[in-house]
Design a protein around this nucleic acid. Structure first.
Lengths: 154, 154
DNA sequence: TATAATTGTGGGTAACAGTGGGTAATTATC
DNA sequence: GATAATTACCCACTGTTACCCACAATTATA
C-alpha cells in the first residue's frame, strides 16, 4: 500500500475550512515516518505554494543550511526566506493541520486547495494558480521535457 | 507460464465497472515481482492513456527523479508533472485496481478498455482512441524507421 | 468427457476518510 | 487581572473505499 516512508506522490483536491485547516491525505499520514511523531513542518515554497515537510526531513534540511557561512548577503537572504516561515505542527485526531495566515496569503489559499505529493515534501496550491502555471507560462519546452524524461527512463 | 518478472506483453479487451475498477490480466499479476507485494502505481501516460507500473519499477523512476534539484524551477515543474498523477494501489482479491477519476477523464475511459502490455509497464486505453491513432497510422516516416533500425534488429 | 480450478464481472456491507462545528484551554490585549 | 481572541481537542455526519461473497464462463486436469 504505502511504498516508502517520507515519500509522497499523487494529488488531492481538498478544502480549507473556516479555521484555516487542511486535511493531510490519509496515504501521506501513513507514509510519515514514526520518528516524526505526527509532526510536519509547514513553510513557504519556492513557487507560490506552501511546502510541508516531515519533521525528520526538515531536520536534514536544517543541517544542510548550517553548512552555509552567512558571509554573503544572498546566502543570508536565502536562508532567511526558507526558515522564517517554518512552523512545526502536529496533525489533530482528524488528520488536519493549521496553515498559518501568512502562508495562506502568500499562496493565495481561500477555500479550495490542491495537495500534491512531491517525493520528500507536500505542496499546497490554489488550484487556479497551478492551472495557470501549467496552461500558460510553464517555461518547460518540449526539448526540456524530452531530455528530462530521457534521464528518468519512464 | 511467466516469461520474466515485471515484463508485460500482449493485449486484453476488458471493461471498467460502475465503481471505476479494471481487472489486471492474470498473466500480468503473475509477472509482477513478489517484492512489489501486489502493488502497482497508476499514473498518467505520455499519450492519452493510463500507465500502470509495478511498484518496484516505479521506485526506480522515483530514484531517478530524486537526482533532480528543487532549486531550479524547470526541474520542479517536471517532477511535479510526473508525480502528481501517480497513485500506489494494491489489487483486490479479485485482481482489480481502482482507476482514479482524474485519470479516467484524461484517458476518456468509460465502459470498455484496452489493456496493453508495454514491457516495463501496462497501458490502459479507450479502444476508440487508439484505433483512431493507428488508422491515421501515426506519422512514422521512412526516416523514423531508419533511426529505429539502428537500435533494434527485428 | 467429466470434474476441478481459474478468470473476469457484479454487487452488498462495514470500515474509513474528509468535513463541519461546538467547547475548553491557551494565549494575547487592554 | 479581566476580557477578548486564538488555538487545540472532541464529537458527529456523510460519502467513498476496501473487503468480502457470489456467479458465469473459460481453461486446466484427471
Amino acid at each position: 500500500m504505502v511504498s516508502r516512508t517520507n515519500t509522497f506522490i499523487g494529488e488531492y483536491h481538498y478544502s480549507i475550512d473556516s479555521k484555516g485547516r487542511i486535511n493531510i491525505p490519509a496515504k501521506f499520514r501513513q507514509a510519515l515516518s514514526p520518528d516524526s511523531d505526527g509532526t510536519f513542518v509547514i513553510t513557504r515554497g519556492l513557487d507560490q505554494c506552501v511546502w510541508i515537510y516531515p519533521l525528520e526531513e526538515w531536520e536534514r534540511i536544517e543541517d544542510n543550511l548550517r553548512s552555509f557561512t552567512f558571509l554573503r548577503p544572498k546566502e543570508r537572504d536565502f536562508i532567511r526566506q526558507i526558515v522564517r516561515h517554518a512552523t512545526p505542527t502536529k496533525y489533530d485526531k482528524q488528520g488536519r493541520v493549521m496553515i498559518p495566515a501568512t502562508l495562506q496569503n502568500i499562496a493565495a489559499l481561500d477555500d479550495e486547495v490542491l495537495i500534491i505529493g512531491m517525493l520528500n515534501k507536500i505542496e499546497v496550491w490554489n488550484p487556479n494558480i497551478i492551472d495557470d502555471r501549467y496552461d500558460s507560462f510553464l517555461d518547460l519546452t518540449d526539448e526540456d521535457y524530452e531530455s528530462f524524461a530521457a534521464q528518468i527512463k519512464l
